[in-house]
Design a protein around this nucleic acid. Sequence first.
DNA 1: AAGCGCTCCAACCGCCGGCAC
DNA 2: TGTGCCGGCGGTTGGAGCGCT
Length: 278
Amino acid sequence: MGRAPCCEKEGLRRGAWSPDEDERLVAYIRRHGHPNWRALPKQAGLLRCGKSCRLRWINYLRPDIKRGNFTAAEEDLIVRLHHSLGNRWSAIAAQLPGRTDNEIKNVWHTHLKKRLDDERKVTGGGGRRQQPRKQPKAAKSAAAAAAKRETTPSVASPRRSSSSVDTSSGATCSTVTESAAAVSSPSPSSAHGHHHQHQQVAVKEESFSSGELPVPMMDLADMDESFWSSTDVTGMMDLGDMDEELSLAGSSTARSEDMEFWLKMLLESGDMRDLAVL
DNA sequence: AAGCGCTCCAACCGCCGGCAC
DNA sequence: TGTGCCGGCGGTTGGAGCGCT
């Protein structure tokens, strides 16, 4: 048999997306949604394979993408979720509104993993960040790079910006959420359940006009009840593990900050049942 | 100033599961 | 029931940018 390749390789563009391609993709999805990724590039007049379009949309063009550095809380959450879920990046991403699995995967491989390894070496096993992470190189350079790109808009390749502001995509993504929400496939109960949690998050409607800042859509601290009630964070996370992680923290300050964070989260969610286990 | 190596991230690739026919 | 298509996932890679020598 053999599976046909996802797309004919010939005649299709690869590599970095141009602003024009981004614009076309966003405009098309805004108008028609994305009922069929395979057919989309043709209909949108893009010389790309459907997968590529999907990836571009999900990882970069989607209007609910949160840009900017990962907060300490987000990083901690990733570490904990990874501890309990393993490399299930999409499941982890489902707990971090506005963050993509790709982004989380990258962050994990670039600094979190390294950081944990270092800490294990230093503390002799286990332990979390004992002091705030140094500003990542990318963050430091991002502003300069962004400024540079502003003047050379050849390829839309925004890097993480410490200012959490990225207007390059925002300008073209004014009201796309509608289609994103509308097209999110009805979720069949399946092993992919976590995908749909993510979709629920994506469905959160945010509209902004061109020129308005598209980010951050939903700060972690601003997560609303719908997010917490629609995502079984506590069910997925082993709070025992979480506590273990916390107990490994070298700094009691770090621990109390974390505890404050989680208390805040639970309080805001209006569901205190889980505190019983703490 | 130039070359080299490293870091980071966007994008690609191959595989898998679900669904429709 | 079998087969093919499609969407989605996780692993991997290529290249741009940056720092160091």
